[in-house]
């Protein structure tokens, strides 16, 4: 019997000698330790053993089983370690390869600026109003104190569709529509496309404006200045200041041109500000009494201010775009640069 056990031990030795894969080892395990394996089979012969030897025989077989199983388990663990190492080696990746994800697209620069402007003014209580782009003479000119013989009509070359209908030359046209339908207090922001017959590096026949209008009791030129100071800080940076200087628009009186201190050089003078330290960004003024009257707002009770700026101009200044055409050409190499 002892001999049989030794034989089995020997054949285990033999079997595991060249084992390299866990699969082969599993087969070996089954061959010796399985339900019908060689070691288990030994116990089946228990009947042939004299009863008094049975306990010691049982002990021997169990010890054998114990030894074999420990040995094979150990071996298995070792083989698995090697196998895992190989697997890891095989599956190793180059972590510097690019990640996989649909890259984000981006908004048009105009939309970026528009949203920034809206967030500045919405926070100060401005509603957003968008009027029609095809306007009539009344809303675009007459109601804005620019009657047909007014020289200011030449300030903007207008695209006409009929004698009366035209492509609006300014978002100011929306002011009138708002004031006709809403009584003060009014605080609106009116972004949109406008059209002028002009085409070069800094002019485009279509561009966008953002118009602001405040009408209430006791509004002053200082309020206009204060609001524009906020705008300049939020859009161009904390240290940026504004400067008002006299100008003329038919629908405001007094009218001002608004410059911001150059955010590139801090006002020392550079190429962007053409050495002046200031950059012209918008036109503004106190709403002309005639405009208020025309909209049924009593100018002796209410005053107001309005301002209007070119969105493309702000975008060009802020992002350093040197030609307005780029904004409308839609070259993907251009568009990809405006993430954020």
């Amino acid at each position: 019997m002892q001999k049989k056990i030794e034989e089995i031990e020997k054949s285990i030795d033999e079997a595991v000698k060249d084992v390299q894969s866990s699969k082969t080892l599993y087969e070996i395990k089954m061959r010796f330790l399985g339900k019908t394996g060689e070691i288990s089979s030994l116990l089946k012969n228990l009947r042939d053993i004299p009863p008094e030897e049975r306990p010691s025989f049982g002990k021997l077989v169990n010890a054998l089983k114990q030894r074999a199983s420990e040995r094979l388990d150990e071996l298995e663990a070792a083989i698995k370690r090697v196998e895992l190492g190989k697997k890891y080696f095989r599956e190793k990746i180059d972590v510097t390869l690019p990640g996989r994800c649909t890259p984000d697209g981006a908004f048009h620069p105009n939309t970026l600026i528009r949203n920034e402007l809206i967030s500045v003014f919405a926070g100060m209580g401005f509603e957003i109003y968008e009027g029609p782009e095809i306007e009539n003479d009344y809303y675009n000119f007459t109601a804005l104190n620019t009657p047909s013989d007014h020289p200011a009509r030449d300030m903007q070359d207008t695209f006409y569709i009929t004698e009366d209908l035209l492509l609006r030359t300014q978002t100011s046209a929306g002011q009138i529509r708002v004031m006709e339908n809403k009584k003060p207090p009014i605080k609106i922001l009116s972004p949109g496309k406008v059209y002028r017959s002009d085409d070069d590096a800094t002019h485009s026949p279509m561009f966008s404006q953002m118009e602001g209008l405040v009408v209430d009791k006791g509004i002053t030129l200082c309020d206009l200045k204060g609001m524009l100071d906020e705008f300049a800080k939020k859009i161009f940076g904390e240290g940026v200041k504004t400067r008002l200087r006299p100008s003329y628009f038919p629908f405001t009186e007094p009218s001002v041109e608004v410059d911001v201190s150059c955010f590139e050089c801090g006002g020392k003078g550079c190429r962007l500000c053409k050495g002046t330290g200031w950059i012209e960004v918008l036109g503004a003024g106190m709403v002309n009494r005639r405009v208020l009257e025309g909209c049924g707002v009593d100018p002796d009770v209410y005053t107001g201010f309005a301002f209007g700026m070119g969105i493309e101009r702000i975008a060009m200044l802020k992002y350093g775009i040197n030609n307005m055409k780029l904004l409308f050409e839609s070259d993907v190499r251009f568009l990809k640069q405006f993430k954020g």
Partner: peptide, 26 residues
């Protein structure tokens, strides 16, 4: 008057007398 007096005399205020309005997108 102001163009001769100088626009630098205009100091910013923030709508000291205006009513509160609710702004934002529709």
């Amino acid at each position: 008057i102001i163009r001769m007096y100088g626009y630098d005399h205009i100091k910013g205020t923030l709508l000291t007398s205006a009513s509160i309005t609710n702004g934002g997108y529709n």
